[in-house]
């Protein structure tokens, strides 16, 4: 079986320097309705002005606590949730004007966390994989499904006619990956795709994802709360807090030295492999503030050790701060002109 048979190449339109996805100022506010007349009484600021780029061929890891807007960001990229504001530019084409949602959906696919809920229990595996190609009018959807099953490590003769409940979690997640690849996408969004698997299966699926990326020249957006996994698979990492980007940078740079106090505490919460180095104190106290009424200024100031007046008054902007032009943080500590007393100084985090 040749590779071209499985995945016909989709044309690169914008050239290698054009980011595959450029997200600009994405906003999603969910209304909270209550009362007799179902009036809107509050707004959840799920994603509030998020901008980032996904470069061609890279894996961008998105990390953050539960409820910080990781999944909503992913759903905004693929158009499953409607944008309130901002724009998504796919390979130079503005989504909605230069390129339609339906066109883009061929190029962007998603793998969900719950492997069982993301497969129709009444369809065989082969039918589930073939659904997308069939809808998009691609040729031979059934053959394509069988080829892809073989590619993700499921023997089509054994599995093609099975139903999702007859498969294990790891096998089902392979099916979901095959289903996403069946559309010959250029970008695959993996929303906690390996989080529900046990560790050995998780490693197998991660290796499969790495192989597939090389083979098909894919770009990944990898959403996870597991920092070890993100380190393994990502090229760049984006850290979110309460619907905003607080830090973004190359994986080595962030794992070596975190710039934002939130990122510092997030990494401090990572279990250590060394028993002498175990974490005993919780690095961050309490839950994140309610996104219905996010704090003023820097959203992290309510839990930050270094918070000063300026943090309450003025929201920091995402900017470079050191010699690495790719490493950005949104913190007054990193901006010498911010007015923070410790700005620009090295602080022991």
């Amino acid at each position: 079986m040749s590779k071209t048979e499985v995945l016909p190449h989709q044309a690169d339109r914008g050239g290698p320097r054009q980011p595959l996805i450029l997200a600009q100022n994405l906003k999603k506010h969910f209304p909270v309705r209550s009362g007799l007349l179902n009036r809107q009484t509050a707004t959840v600021h799920a994603v509030d002005g998020v901008s980032f780029e996904v470069r061609k061929g890279e894996t961008l890891g998105i990390v953050g606590e539960s409820g910080c807007g990781k999944s909503t960001t992913a759903r905004l990229l693929i158009g499953l949730t409607e944008l309130d504001d901002g724009s998504v530019i796919f390979d130079g084409d503005i989504l909605g004007s230069d390129i339609s949602l339906k066109e883009m959906r061929r190029s962007v696919q998603m793998v969900f966390q719950d492997s069982y809920a993301s497969l129709n229990p009444r369809l065989t595996i082969a039918d589930s994989i073939a659904f997308g190609p069939k809808v998009q009018g691609l040729s031979d959807p059934k053959d394509r499904a069988r080829d892809l099953m073989a590619r993700v490590g499921l023997d089509p003769n054994r599995f093609a006619h099975r139903y999702p409940h007859e498969l294990s979690g790891g096998q089902r997640q392979r099916v979901n990956i095959a289903r996403a690849l069946a559309m010959s996408p250029r970008l695959v969004i993996l929303d906690e795709a390996v989080s529900a698997l046990d560790k050995s299966v998780e490693a197998q699926v991660l290796n499969l994802l790495t192989e597939l990326r090389k083979e098909f020249g894919l770009t990944y957006v990898f959403i996870s709360h597991d920092l070890n996994v993100v380190r393994y698979i990502s090229d760049r990492v984006l850290v979110m807090y309460l619907g905003e980007v607080v830090e973004v940078g190359p994986v080595e740079a962030i794992y070596a030295k975190q710039a934002h106090p939130y990122t510092v505490s997030l990494f401090a919460a990572m279990p250590s492999m060394d028993p002498d180095n175990r974490t005993e104190e919780p690095p961050l106290a309490g839950d994140p503030p309610n996104p219905i009424d996010p704090p003023s200024g820097c959203r992290f100031h309510t839990r930050c050790r270094f918070a000063e007046h300026v943090c309450r008054d003025k929201p920091p902007t995402l900017a470079t701060f050191g010699e690495n032009p790719d490493h950005l943080a949104a913190c007054h500590l990193r901006d010498p002109s911010s007015g923070h007393s410790l700005a620009g100084k090295e602080v022991a985090a």
Binding site: R75, S128, Q136
Partner: peptide, 11 residues
């Protein structure tokens, strides 16, 4: 999720 996945396939 499988309805979302189907929507993401452009159906």
């Amino acid at each position: 999720d499988y309805i979302d996945a189907a929507r993401a396939s452009g159906g």
